[in-house]
């Protein structure tokens, strides 16, 4: 049997183990990933199995982790760096944006830097400041980086392997509040290519686009919408750079309505870019303006109020309603 039921966390762990097994040039590095197995235990057991040179407990410094990963990649290695939490990526932001993203360009294609950076992201886990952010737009905005985010165990298992195999740097955003979500993982049959968005629910009346932690919320909203007799399609974007605009535009042309949901603040978020593209390419098929559901323009709030901050089923359904009654929202 090649199919096994496991959590997203276990799927990433199994995917990483397979990478380490198959590619001797691959290695994991980060804070607390070895002996402890990572604060989320994503790398549990890997140091014991592959040794301290392949699963490296680094000094506690994000710029150093990314900077040394770049150097190792130049040397022919495939480093997979873990940033412990979304809000801790910023000490490494300079190395990611001015160095990692631009090295291939700067060297006129002579140097590849196939570094994968794993970042647990998103809220809803009841944590303290800097542990619940969704900074994906900052990286998607930076040419030279690829951004992936899985939402299911099967995708997590395969996409982490795709990320490492890619000759470009990849930021791999892991939906941390879905780490314990279970699902079937087929370890023989690959998931769809990571840059391809997936229609995860077919529908005819509207399309909800989501990624990472909000995909299950979008699916639940679509299910709830059936009570109002609405048949809603759901797309899991999976890759945030490049964005599979073709799939999103084709779906919107069919359904005539698009709701984009992400945890990141709406202002300057990826939803705005996607809404603009869809408006350019599906304007005459749209029955209503593209609706966006996202975080507010505020730092991620304290956890006692995060439930009100995070897009949930009701907020998505509310946005869905506006696309059926556009004059109300106007």
């Amino acid at each position: 049997m090649s199919t096994e039921r496991m959590t997203v966390a276990k799927a990433i762990n199994a995917g990483l183990a397979r990478v380490l097994e198959e590619n001797p040039k691959s290695l994991l590095l980060g804070e607390d990933i070895g002996r402890l197995g990572g604060v989320y235990r994503i790398t549990e057991g890997l140091q014991a199995r592959f040794g301290e040179d392949r699963v490296v407990d680094t000094p506690l410094a994000e710029s150093g982790i990314i900077g040394t990963s770049i150097g190792m990649a130049m040397r022919g290695y495939r480093p997979i760096a873990e940033i412990q939490f979304d809000g801790f990526v910023f000490p490494g932001f300079n190395q990611i944006t001015t160095q990692l993203a631009k090295m291939h360009f700067r060297t006129e294609g002579r140097v590849n830097v196939p570094v994968t950076i794993r970042i647990p992201y998103g809220g809803g886990i009841g944590s303290v400041e800097h542990h619940s952010e969704s900074p994906e737009a900052l990286f998607a905005h930076t040419a030279g980086l690829r951004i992936m985010t899985p939402s299911t165990p099967h995708d997590a298992y395969w996409m982490i392997q795709d990320a490492v195999a890619c000759d470009d740097p990849v930021i791999f955003f892991e939906p941390k509040r879905r780490y314990w979500l279970k699902g079937e993982v087929d370890t023989e049959h690959r998931a769809a290519p990571p840059e391809r968005a997936q229609v995860v629910r077919r529908g005819t009346d509207a399309t909800i686009l989501a990624w990472g932690p909000l995909v299950p919320v979008a699916l639940a909203a679509a299910q709830a919408a059936t009570d109002d007799g609405r048949d809603v399609e759901v797309i899991d974007l999976r890759s945030l750079s490049p964005v599979d605009f073709d799939t999103v535009i084709a779906s919107t042309r069919r359904t005539g309505r698009l709701i984009i949901a992400h945890e990141a603040p709406t202002f300057g978020g990826l939803g705005g870019e996607i809404a603009a593209r869809v408006s350019e390419h599906a304007f005459f098929q749209l029955e209503a303006p593209v609706a966006r559901v996202g975080g507010f323009h505020m730092p991620y709030p304290p956890s006692k109020v995060e439930a009100q901050y995070l897009p949930d089923i009701d907020r998505i359904l509310d946005a869905l309603d506006t696309t059926f009654n556009p004059e109300v929202s106007a």
Partner: peptide
């Protein structure tokens, strides 16, 4: 060509090349 010359290209962001050098050495 940095690979042919053993001399990396210039880095304009101060010190950013230094951790990269360390990573290369770790390789």
């Amino acid at each position: 060509d940095p690979t042919r010359t053993g001399f990396h290209v210039y880095t304009m962001v101060l010190a950013a090349q230094v951790p990269q050098a360390v990573g290369y050495a770790q390789g």
